[in-house]
Design a protein around this nucleic acid. Sequence first.
DNA 1: TAGGCCATCTGGTCCT
DNA 2: AGGACCAGATGGCCTA
Length: 377
Amino acid sequence: MVFFLSVFASHWPEKRKQRFTMLTRLFSDPSLLPDVQKYSAWVEDSDGEDQKIKDEDQDAQDDMDASDLMGSSRTHSEHAGDDDEDDDAEEDEDGEDIEGDRPKKRGPKKRKMTQARIERSKVRRIKANARERTRMHDLNSALDNLRKVVPCYSKTQKLSKIETLRLAKNYIWALSEILRSGKRPDLVSYVQTLCKGLSQPTTNLVAGCLQLNSRNFLTEQQCQDGGRYSSGSFSMHSYPYQCARLSSPHCQPGSNSHPLRTHGYCSTYDSLYGGSGSPEYNSPEYEGPLSPPLCINGNFSLKHQGPGSPENEKGYHYSMHYSGLPGSRPTGGHNLVFGSSGARSGIHSENVLPYHDMHLHHERAPVYDELNAFFHN
DNA sequence: TAGGCCATCTGGTCCT
DNA sequence: AGGACCAGATGGCCTA
């Protein structure tokens, strides 16, 4: 309390703010009533004329009605705000006193807070907190799933939420551009697109994941920041990328051959195009599947979700599918990377994981049939 | 130590 | 009345 007094006394605007917070908290917890009393005393001491707060605090002690405690704590917030307004009036308008004319309390008449109501309110608040936690956990779980399907997934060094969303947006954009143009993008443009709007660390990370020194493109990228994406973002350079084995050594669990494997990363582009990962890289920190388990024809899969996962519980489906041709081997639909055939792009069907390795339990979506048809034609 | 990120609590609002 | 969603506040943790 001494601390509060000293702080409040030395920082008046901050004091008002904290008083507001303090009020709302005090009034939301009857167990803090003693503090309410202290607070009231302090208000009297510090404000002198501010009798209103004290009176209302006393009311809180006497009545403790439900609206003060829970759902309609706004009433007290308003009063706190009113107090602020009064303070402002006292400070800014030098004594324009409207307090006397103002009714003490607005809105519907408050109902008496019985002990039972207090208890119900507490229980309601606890349940609401639990629901909110669950909701946020579900949200985070979904975000984790998103992290797994954007480039540069790592369990050990996760992208932040905002960066994950940005990268996902860019990733969708990049894939859309690929589908729209039907052309293989050059790596630089690909990375540029992925890194639009990302922070510098994430940009470096993505670039690193894609085995590209970010300095090679950062300047250009930054020049483009704030501008519109150009349809020419993906040019027609013929990079000799090949669709590496998605099970390539440096991306295999336990293989640890990628430099970024020190952070548990593996890149999509690297996987798809046969990055320069060299076998000497070793890291023991691989902890999960590559991100994303995707071939550029739009098929990707998520790690198998247990029956208890929120998505499964709620019947969500990530419709990433095996898209093999009828009668073909299951891997047939995966050997296309920015090209119309595996031969043309230097891809062979053995360069991708077997169907059962990559796609555990996904359904088939018409859109991917269309995409496959597009790439096959 | 400042700043970023995150989890949690909380109250408001809307809807059923 | 209660649940879902949202945003603000807060404190902890981590890193440059």
